[in-house]
Design a protein around this nucleic acid. Structure first.
Lengths: 201, 201
DNA sequence: TCAAACTCCTAACATTGTTAGACATTAGAC
DNA sequence: GTCTAATGTCTAACAATGTTAGGAGTTTGA
C-alpha cells in the first residue's frame, strides 16, 4: 500500500538530497573544497549538521555522488559536441571537455584528484563508464567518417582521455606558463596527430 | 662570530627537518595522505606534536617542501634517462617519469592533485622549474639527434608533460581498464606520434 | 656563575566528521 | 478522534585535527 503522503515524503527526501549536493557544490565553487564542511553545507540550507546523515552515510558518500553528477554532466556535454559536423567533431569534443572543466572546476576536482574516491574497485560509478562510452563512440564515428577504423577503440579512448585530462589538470593547477589560453591552444593542436596515430586503414 | 656549537645546532636542525619530511613521506606511503597528521609525524620520531612548528610554519609548508623534494628526485631520474642512446631516449624519459611516479606514489600525489599547493603564483618551486627544464633540454636533444628542431620547445614540453601526467594520473587512480600494465603500454605507444608532431624540419 | 637562548613538553583552543538521545510532528490503524 | 509508531530535526557530546600559549629543563657564551 503506497499512500500519497509516502510519495510526497519520498519526493521531499530526494529534493533535500539534491539541495545538499547543490549546496556543497556551490560552496566548493565559491571558496574551494577546503571550505566544504558538513556544518556549512547544512547551514546554507538553514539546517543543523546531522541532517546530512539522513541522506548520506558520510561526507565521502556525498562527494562520491557529486563526482557521479559531474560525470553525468560531462557525458551530456560530450554527447552534444558529438552531434556537430564530422570534420570539426574531434576539436569539438576536446573543446567540450575543456569547457566543462573550466565552467565547473569544483566538479572537475571532485571527479579527479580528490583522494578517497573509489575507482579502481568494482563500483566505478556508472556515470563515469557512461561518459567513457560516449567518448569512445564519438571517436569511432570520427574515424569512420574518415573512412578508417580505430585499431584499439578502448585504448584510443583511454589515450585521448588521458591527454585531455593531463592538459586540463596542469592548466587548472596554473602549471602551464602562459595561462589557460595557451594551454588550450597546445591541447587542440596536439589533438589531431594524437588521434591520427590511433587510426588504422 | 660563528661558534662550533652553532654549527652543530644548525646541522641538527637541518637533520631534524629532513627526518620530519621523511616521516611524513613514509606514513603517506604506508597508509595514504589521510593518515599523515602532525601528531603522527612527530610521534614517529618520538616527539610531541608542536616540535613540527619549529621547523615548518604549518603543515602545508611541510607538504610544499615535500613536493619540492619530489620534483628534485624526478628531475634526477629524468636527467639519468636522458643519458642513454638517442634512439631510445624518448621512451626512456617517459619510462623514467612513469617509474618515478609508481615507485613513489606518495610523492607524486604531493606534487600533483593535492590542493593547497601554490603553483600558478610567483613561487612555483624552483625544483619544478628545474625538472621542466631538464625535460625540455632532453626533448630538444632528441629532436636534434633526428636532424630536426622543436617548433615550440616550451610548448612541446608542456604537451608531452601533460600527456605523461594524464596517463600516470588516470592509471594511479585505477581508471584505466586493464591496469597499470596496459596503461603504460598505451602511453608508450602514443609517445612517438605525439612527439613527431612537435618537430619541424 | 648567570642571564639569555634553545629545546621540548603539557595543556588548551577552535574546528572537523560523526553519533546518541531527546523532542516534536506527522501517519496510518482502530 | 485517539493512540502508537515512524519521521524529521535539534542540541550535546565524542574523538581527532591543526595550531598556539606558557612553562619547565638544558645548553650557550660571557
Amino acid at each position: 500500500m503506497v499512500t500519497t503522503s509516502q510519495r510526497r515524503r519520498e519526493r521531499e527526501r530526494r529534493e533535500m538530497r539534491a539541495r545538499l549536493l547543490q549546496a556543497a557544490r556551490v560552496i566548493a565553487a565559491e571558496e574551494g573544497w577546503n571550505a566544504v564542511t558538513i556544518r556549512r553545507i547544512a547551514g546554507r540550507l538553514e539546517y543543523s549538521a546531522p541532517v546530512l546523515y539522513q541522506h548520506f552515510s558520510s561526507k565521502e558518500e556525498l562527494l562520491t555522488e557529486l563526482m557521479a553528477v559531474g560525470f553525468a554532466e560531462l557525458a551530456g556535454q560530450l554527447r552534444l559536441a558529438a552531434e556537430g559536423p564530422p570534420e570539426g567533431r574531434l576539436a569539438a569534443m576536446a573543446g567540450a571537455y575543456w569547457a566543462f572543466a573550466f565552467a565547473s572546476p569544483e566538479l572537475y576536482q571532485a571527479m579527479n584528484g580528490m583522494d578517497g574516491v573509489p575507482f579502481g574497485t568494482a563500483e566505478t560509478p556508472e556515470e563515469a563508464r557512461n561518459a567513457f562510452r560516449t567518448f569512445r563512440a564519438a571517436l569511432q564515428e570520427i574515424a569512420r567518417a574518415r573512412g578508417a577504423e580505430l585499431a584499439d577503440p578502448a585504448g584510443a579512448t583511454d589515450t585521448m582521455w588521458a591527454f585531455l585530462h593531463g592538459c586540463v589538470s596542469l592548466a587548472m593547477a596554473g602549471r602551464i606558463a602562459g595561462g589557460t589560453e595557451r594551454a588550450r591552444t597546445l591541447m587542440v593542436s596536439a589533438l589531431e596527430p594524437l588521434f591520427a596515430a590511433q587510426v588504422e586503414g
